[in-house]
Each structure stands twice: as C-alpha cells, then as structure tokens.
Design a protein around this nucleic acid. Structure first.
Length: 517
RNA sequence: GCUUCCUUAGCUCAGCCGGUUAGAGCAUCUGACUGUUAAUCAGAGGGUCCCUGGUUCGAGCCCAGGAGGGAGCGCCA
C-alpha cells in the first residue's frame, strides 16, 4: 500500500487534470498555431499596440500574488525583459489565463492550475500569447496581458543554478553551459557577434577578400609559439623507424602535423595575388599561459595587403580598430550601457575616446628614451635591445600618453624572421598596437620582400628554409612590398565589453587544464 | 612555468586569541498581500567548514602534503 501522502498528491494531480477535456498541444486551434513569434526586442520597440502577440523565452523572475502575476521573460534578442502580466477575473483568485503544461490544457482555476503555475519559475521556458498593451506600471513602456501561457520546459527551482541575485564570474565559468542565460553573458555574446560581423563588413567595404587558411598545418616553422600535434597514430604504441623514432610516414598526412598558430604565411601567398586579403579563424597555442589575456584556442584576424608599407599598415590598423569600436557603440548601445553600469563605469567614455582620438605613434627607440627618463620605478630595467615588459607598455599607454599607442621599429633580435629590415640594419619594420588594460592587441609588420635578405635572416635565426620553400617562392617570383598584422579577436571583445578576463568573452574557453563543455 | 592570495549552506560571504549546539544576506519551501520592478512581510528547511595526515584536553581556525580557483609575471594576439 503506497504512502497516504504520496497517494493524495498523486490523486490531486491526476484526477483534476483527467476531469478536464485534454486536447493535445498539437491540436490547438489553428489561429493559435499560426500566430507568428515576435522577439522581445521587436515588441519593446513596437508602436503598434493593442494587438495579439506570441512571444517565447526564459523566465528571469516571477512575482505577485494569487490575483496578479508578473513574469519577466527574456529571449536573448535584447538585454531587456518583457513583462508578462496575468490578472484574475473580478472577485476570483488565480489569474485568468489558459495554462498549457506537458501538452495539456489545464483550467485557469483549481488545483491543476496551481500546479501549472508552480512550473513558472526562474529558468523555465514559456510561450506566451496575449495582448501587447501600454504598461499600467512604471519601469516599462509596454507589457503583455497574457491570455495563454504554455510551459515549454520547466526548470526545477531547487536545482537550477542561476539565481536572481548576483553570481560571481568565476562560478559562472564552472557552469559555462548556462551562463549565456545571464544578462552579462547575453550582452558579451551579442557584442561579440556584432564585432565579428563588423570585421567582415569593414573588409568587404574596403575591397578585401576573405581567405580561409588551413587549420591543420604541416609546417612547424611559423615561429609563433608551441603547437598542438595532430595525429591519428596510437599514443601507446606508435610505429617506429629503425632508429626508434616515431615513423610519421605512417601518420594520416604522412608527416608530422599541427594545429595552426597563425594564418599569416598562407595569407601572404593570397595577398600576392588578390591584393588585399584577410583571414578570420581559430588559432591554437599550446603555451602554458595562465593569464587573463591568453587562451589556448582563440580567434584571430589577419589582414595582409600587397604594396602596403609600414605607414599604411598603421593607418589600416588604426582605422580598422576605430571602425569596429564605433560599430559597437552604434549597434550595441543597450548591452554596452549595461556593462558600463555593472562592471566598468569608464567603459563608454573610454570607447568614445578611442574612436575620437588618433593613436600615438612612436618608435621603440623613442619609447625606451621616455621610459628611461620616467620618474616611475620599474621592476624590470629598461634597456635598448630588450623587449618591453607589461609594466613598461602599461606606463606608456595608461600614464604617459593616456591613449592607444603604436610602437614601431623594434630591434631585429626580438622580432620574427619575416619582418622587413630597416636601412640601419638594426631594427625591423614591426608595429605593436597597445591598448589600455589589454596590452598588445595587434602585432604586425611590413614583410621582408627581398629574397636574399629574407633567407639571410632565416639562416641567422635558424628557421629551416627548406620547409618554407613555398613561402620563399613569393619572393622569388614577382615579389612586392607588403604588410599585415594579427588582431586577437578576444582581446578586442575584452576591450569593447570592459570585461577583465579573456575567459569571459568566449563561449567555451580553452586554457591549461581546462577543456570542459 | 614562477610569485602570491583564496577554498565555510544552492549563491555571495562573516566567523574574534584554538574553547558550548556553525552565522548572515540572497535563493528554495510554506503562509500573507489585487500592479509588482532583483516586489515586500512572517516563518521553515538547508553544512563532508576542499581532501589527507599531524599538533592539541579540544581544530573551521595552527602545521605538512595534495587538489581546485583567482590575481600578478613570463610566453603572445
């Protein structure tokens, strides 16, 4: 014999529901099914009131009493919620709406209705049909007077991890599969989308062609960092050659292969035919970097332009960045306002400043002089010939110039082999764009187009020329001056959103000891 | 990889010099309230104090080792 309490609960639940006519969800009247879904964004902007609408989304909060209920619903189309109101008939308890739960219509009064109402909790997914009307309350212009609410998916309030109150960004990283449902990550992901779109739009308007460079590369000479090996050989017992080393001729590609650390070298090949090109794709670095500015898997944009020299490369980088930030300011106003209010009160001011003011351009040598005469004490000494430390870059950007800085003409010893040698033979035509709070957001250069100088540099730096003969062919056949740079997409998103950790501006971050989701 | 800080309720955190039964706000549950704005008010339930070992009459607190996380640095975008 079952426990009495359990039996009563079961009866209350089943009996009331089976006492009602039970049309299935799929046999709802045609006018219900034909009503097209509106986004919250469209409804909040609508001037066309007093009409029937259908909206679907997730419950952010529910409040009220047994006579009137207010449900804040968000569908991701915009950061704002739409308020759903369910009011009771005069003199009656329970709001007068038709509730649909588990594909069955339940009455608008009675125990089954109470059960259905209990499913409307934070995190639950609803479809709401009702009248779009001017709001009677303050705080929102319009609201929906619900006539029918369908519970598409309940969310157990005891188990649902996202509360109405603040949750730390660190904890949200542990539940990254649910964090898009928060205001913060909704805003970040919409801004991220807008920036990605703006990048393609900018290049398309300016005559650049989007080139897809390979993700899997057979070259380990790109010089941009540690690589992830790609192999189908069994890790326990790989085939061996006679001398005992792994026999990569039996691997999938017949040679060792890795995930790309840069599309630049292939991008240069395309630029030497199409003129202006860009890449925008995933990039992988197997470095053990544990910082708020590094990911093992990130997205990089690499434009490359034939006939451009260093000056034009700087002009492109500056105009490009300013255009992207301007696009975000114009198209993500609500999201940026939220991030400004919630995380970084200077965000909008800083973004406008970057759009309105020219970047400071100076050479590495000039920067060293400024740093040497600075009153500030640095942990690491400044000396011509050594790379600048984070503290030095931060001083220049945040204290001395108080604006984005483009540093050029670095000593050749601290830069990559493909950068064009200056006439003095000591420096190369490199450029780093430094942003406040981010540090290096762009790294680029004019490329060495002279075959002899390039091969000499490669020999000096022990870069195997035989593996890069295809690259050297561009210098052998119809070489031309050209220049380009790499923009870390997540660093751009970091700057525009004002977030402080790069792991919070990509949906599923990859970093040492973490590849969850 | 290095330096440093942290780990206590579902979440955010407090916990005095090592001393009785482990605390708050929010969330959750129950009740009240006919237009709320992260609603409010009243009540209730909720704990492997990260793990292992040690010191002590006694450990959330002290010591050692381990795990996880944050921040800073290096590598870079």
């Amino acid at each position: 014999m079952p426990e009495l309490a359990a039996l009563v609960g079961e009866m209350k639940f089943r009996a009331t529901r089976s006492a009602l006519p039970l049309p299935s969800y799929n046999s709802l009247p045609p006018q219900v099914m034909s009503l097209k879904r509106s986004t919250v964004k469209a409804l909040l902007a609508s001037q066309n009131l007093d009409r029937e609408v259908l909206v679907k989304g997730w419950v952010r909060s529910r409040r009220g009493n047994k006579y009137v209920q207010f449900i804040a619903v968000n569908d991701g189309s915009i950061i704002h919620n739409i308020q759903i109101v369910a009011v009771s008939e005069q003199g009656k308890e329970l709001p007068l709406i038709k509730l649909v739960w588990e594909k069955e219509i339940v009455a608008n009064t009675g125990p089954s209705s109470e059960e259905a109402f209990k499913q409307i909790t934070t995190g639950a997914c609803l479809a709401i049909r009702g009248q779009l009307v001017a709001s009677q309350g303050k705080g929102q212009a319009v609201e929906i007077q619900a006539t029918e609410i369908t519970v598409l998916g309940a969310a157990d309030p005891e188990a649902y991890p996202l509360q109405k109150k603040a949750t730390s960004l660190e904890h949200l990283r542990d539940i990254a599969h649910l964090r898009p449902r928060t205001n913060t990550f909704g805003a970040v992901l919409r801004v991220r989308h807008a920036l990605a779109f703006a990048i393609h739009d900018y290049f398309n308007r300016n005559g650049f062609f989007y080139v897809h460079t390979p993700i899997i590369t057979g070259s380990d000479a790109e010089g941009a960092g540690q690589m992830f090996r790609v192999t189908t050989l069994p890790p326990e017992h790989p085939p061996r050659t006679e001398d005992g080393s792994v026999d990569f001729t039996q691997d999938f590609f017949g040679k060792p292969t890795n995930l790309t650390v840069s599309g630049q070298l292939e991008g240069e090949l395309a630029a030497m035919a199409l003129g202006s090109i860009y890449t925008f794709g995933p990039t992988f670095r197997a470095e053990n970097s544990n910082t708020a500015r590094h990911l093992a898997e990130f997205w990089m944009i690499e434009p490359e332009v034939a006939f451009n020299e260093l000056e034009e490369n700087m002009d492109l980088a500056e105009d490009f960045l300013q255009s992207l930030v301007r696009y975000a300011l114009e198209h993500c106003a609500d999201d940026l306002q939220f991030l400004n209010d919630q995380y970084d009160k200077e965000l909008l001011t800083r973004l406008s400043f970057v759009v309105d003011n020219a970047f400071q351009r100076l050479t590495y040598t000039e920067a060293v002089e400024i740093l040497k005469s600075a009153k500030q004490r640095f942990e690491f000494p400044v000396d011509w010939g050594t790379d600048l430390q984070s503290e030095h870059e931060r001083y220049l950007v945040e204290k001395h110039f108080k604006k984005p800085v483009i540093l050029t003409n670095y000593p050749k010893e601290i830069k990559a082999f493909y950068m064009k040698l200056d006439d003095d033979g000591r420096t190369v035509r490199a450029m780093d764009v430094l942003f406040p709070g981010i540090g290096e957001i762009i790294g680029g250069s004019q490329r060495e187009e002279d075959y002899t100088k390039l091969t000499t540099r490669m020999a000096d730096m022990h870069v195997p020329a035989d593996e890069l003969d295809w690259y050297l062919d561009t210098r052998r056949f119809g070489t031309a001056p050209h220049a380009g740079f790499g923009l870390g997409f997540e660093r751009l998103v970091l700057f525009v959103t004002g977030m402080s950790n790069i792991r919070d501006v990509i949906p599923f971050p990859r970093y040492p000891k973490n590849a969850a989701f």
